[in-house]
Structures are given as structure tokens and as C-alpha cells.
Amino acid sequence: MQTNEIDVRVREILRLALKTDVPEEGSYAREDDPNWDSLKHVEMIFMLEDEFDVQFAEDDFAKMGSVAAIVALVEANHAA
């Protein structure tokens, strides 16, 4: 799967999970969005795991604080 495609799908998941207007491109991080609390973070992880058919390690949960970081983790999980 191409990085661009992962990026588009991650942003769509974030829109659904955070119920917020995540931009189609550019950086987007947890500190940009007051809706992105720990509960929404868990829902986002649930949806990302379903969407990309991956299982993130517990240590990765805290690293998933931006679109770029999530895309990198999805790619790493797919590569593994």
C-alpha cells in the first residue's frame, strides 16, 4: 500500500473518531485538536487496527500523536 493511500485513510479514520474536520493534507497532531483526548485516542486505535488489519504494540499507543506518526507506524507494521 502506498504512503499516500495510507495517509488518506488515516485522515478519514481520524475524522470519524475525533468527529472533527481533519485537513486533507499537511501536518495534523494531537496538540492541534482538543477533541483528541485519551478516550478518542483509544477509539482511533481500534479503528486503525480494523482499517489496516494490524495490531499495534502497547508501546506504540503513546507514539500515535500525529497523522505522520500513525502513517509511519502503519507502514512499519505492514513491513514487519
Binding site: S38, L39, H41, V42, F46, E49, A57, E58, F61
Partner: peptide
């Protein structure tokens, strides 16, 4: 059990 530390829940997504 992975979710306990970040979401204070032990329920899996399947369970939810």
C-alpha cells in the same frame, strides 16, 4: 489487556 494503560478498559474492540 493492551488497552488498560491507555483507555482504562480491559474490554477488546470485539467486546465493545
Amino acid at each position: 489487556k493492551r488497552m488498560a494503560s491507555v483507555g482504562a478498559t480491559r474490554l477488546s474492540e470485539r467486546a465493545n
